[in-house]
Structure formats: structure tokens, C-alpha cells
Amino acid sequence: MNIKVALVTGASSGIGEATALELKALGYTVFAAARRVERMRALANAGIHVLAMDVTDDVTMQAAIDEIIANSGRIDVLVNNAGYGSYGAVEDVSLAEARAQFDVNVFGAVRLTQLVLPHMRSQRRGTVVNITSMGGKIYTPLGAWYHGTKFALEAISDCLRLEVQPFGIDVVVIEPGGIKTEWAGIAANKLQEVSGKGAYASQAAAMAEAMIGESSRKRQSPPELIAETIGKAVSARRPRTRYAVGFGAKPMIFIRRLLSDRAFDAFMRMATGTARGADTRRL
């Protein structure tokens, strides 16, 4: 078969939506998956197959893969894009929320990968694209659980790449920088809910401003930039293992490599405004 088949998760908005459209334009049969199916009408109108999927629900994931195989007989590309940012001080974030963050950002992606790999192995070809973040290489104040998921997915991707290479399967990591999506607003709201009062309130206010302030929004890259990068990666005969792209991604990763831990701590406090926001009073 000449037509390749792709599955994109988190496709109801932002990077996922843009990626589904990009792969469709490249000639793929595209299946776009998300919990909010009603938000994918534009994708359906563009000839993209829309699937209801919750990456924390194994039944919906298995049903989606079964439908793709029944419909197309194969799956060539999996883009693990579904995810969200849970921000808040380590002291404040409940372990239930921490587990939920890992369930979506890590275990959902891994489980879906497990479901597609038998089909890719039987084809002797395929590409798994994991959307991590520059936050899988750097860290910011009040983002421990989010960064933990992205660091974890980076490591899992490396191990997976070694395992599946003999079967002709590529594993590609995309590390976006600041992108114009709903992500920052959701993460900032979560941060204020969790740590907007109490000992970390001043840091939370500064960090939220760094996420969604006017200067930050102006510099963010469009999600189409990430979609185009994914398109290039899955079209390459030998794709790179990692693509750092979008506002700040390459410079921030370079700075992290260059600086010591303490020096990067100081840089990050200054960059996020949390040095001014730190409140060390006893509460």
C-alpha cells in the first residue's frame, strides 16, 4: 500500500490539530484522537478520521487501534501528543494529581505505543513520535511533576529506540519551546489554584506571569511550526532522534548544558521572575 496511516493524540487543538492537518496534507490517512470529539469538527470536515480516546482509559485506546486496523489494515505513524501541564510547589501538589500527570503524559503515551508496536513490527516499519518539551531537558520553579513526566518520556524514548530499531521502527522526540496553544493558560491556572496562596504564593504569581504575560505570548511560536517539524521527521529516510524547535527551545537547552546546576538555578530564577517573587517569611 502506498498510503500511510497516522494516529495523532491530543488532536482537539494546538499541536495535535496542526499535526493532523499537516500529515493529511502530506498524503497520510489520518486518525485524530481526543476526549473532546466535538472540538474536532474542522478536522472531520478536512477528511480526517475522528476518534474518541482518553489516554488514561485502556478500553478507548484499544478500541481506537482496533478501528484503525479494521479500517486501514496498518499504522505507520503514532504521534503521542496528548498531555497537560500540572504546576505547583512540590509541597502543595497532591500525590493524586501527581499520579494523574504521569498517567496522561507518560503512561498514556507508553500504553498506546505498546498497542501499535505489534502492527509496526509486522510491517517492519513505523515511526513513534513522542512530544516531550524543552522541559524534558531543563527545569523551572514550581513545575516538578510536569518536568518529571517529560524527563521520563525522554528516557523511555531512548530505551525504546534501541529496542525497536532492529524491526525498522524509528523513535523520534520532539522538544517544543514556547508555543501558542492552550497549554500555558491551563498550566498557569493550575499553578494559581494549587500554590496561589501560602508560602509559595509570590513565586506562583511570578511564574504564572512568565507563562502567560504579554511579553511571553508575543514570542511564542505557532503550533504549525511543530507540525511541520513532525512532517519532516516522519518523511525522512533517517530522521534525527530529537528535534528542538519553537521559541527558546535550542537556546535554553544549550544554556542548560553550558551552566552548572547552581548557575542554571540562578539563571532560571531571574528568567522567570521568581527570584523577586520568593517569599521566605515563616507562615
Score class of each variant (00 low, 15 high):
137 K>G: 00
182 E>T: 13
245 V>F: 03
144 A>D: 06
160 L>S: 05
161 R>W: 02
164 V>S: 11
169 I>M: 02
185 G>K: 14
149 T>E: 09
234 V>T: 07
145 W>P: 00
213 G>A: 08
186 I>G: 13
235 S>P: 05
181 T>W: 02
217 R>Y: 09
162 L>W: 07
167 F>I: 08
136 G>W: 00
152 A>C: 02
173 V>D: 01
226 I>Y: 04
170 D>R: 14
217 R>G: 05
148 G>Q: 00
253 I>H: 06
219 R>F: 03
211 M>E: 09
156 I>L: 14
145 W>Q: 11
201 A>E: 10
229 T>E: 05
204 A>N: 06
212 I>S: 11
153 L>C: 00
209 E>K: 15
211 M>H: 06
250 K>F: 08
201 A>P: 04
245 V>I: 15
228 E>S: 14
206 A>K: 15
141 P>S: 11
235 S>L: 13
147 H>K: 00
251 P>L: 01
184 A>E: 14
195 S>H: 06
245 V>K: 03
180 K>E: 10
227 A>W: 03
244 A>W: 12
219 R>Y: 03
167 F>S: 14
227 A>S: 14
243 Y>R: 02
174 I>Y: 01
142 L>W: 04
156 I>R: 04
175 E>H: 08
140 T>I: 04
166 P>K: 11
135 G>P: 07
159 C>F: 10
174 I>S: 00
144 A>G: 09
186 I>H: 13
192 Q>Y: 04
183 W>Q: 12
216 S>I: 05
202 S>R: 15
193 E>S: 14
227 A>R: 09
187 A>D: 06
188 A>M: 10
143 G>L: 05
213 G>R: 05
235 S>H: 10
214 E>D: 15
215 S>P: 08
183 W>S: 13
143 G>K: 01
156 I>G: 03
184 A>Y: 02
215 S>T: 15
194 V>M: 08
221 S>Q: 10
137 K>R: 13
235 S>M: 14
184 A>G: 08
244 A>R: 15
248 G>W: 03
201 A>C: 06
224 E>M: 09
239 P>A: 12
240 R>P: 00
225 L>V: 13
249 A>R: 05
248 G>K: 10
145 W>G: 00
223 P>H: 11
215 S>M: 14
160 L>V: 04
157 S>L: 03
162 L>Q: 09
252 M>I: 03
234 V>H: 01
141 P>G: 10
186 I>P: 03
227 A>T: 12
146 Y>D: 02
227 A>Y: 06
226 I>R: 03
140 T>C: 05
250 K>R: 14
135 G>R: 06
190 K>F: 01
150 K>V: 09
198 G>D: 10
219 R>D: 06
213 G>Y: 09
178 G>I: 01
221 S>E: 04
148 G>N: 01
239 P>G: 12
165 Q>G: 08
203 Q>Y: 07
212 I>C: 12
200 Y>W: 13
172 V>D: 01
231 G>S: 12
132 T>L: 08
162 L>H: 11
227 A>M: 13
198 G>T: 11
209 E>C: 11
208 A>E: 11
146 Y>N: 05
241 T>N: 00
145 W>D: 00
171 V>C: 02
195 S>P: 03
193 E>P: 05
227 A>C: 12
222 P>W: 08
194 V>Y: 02
245 V>W: 04
167 F>V: 09
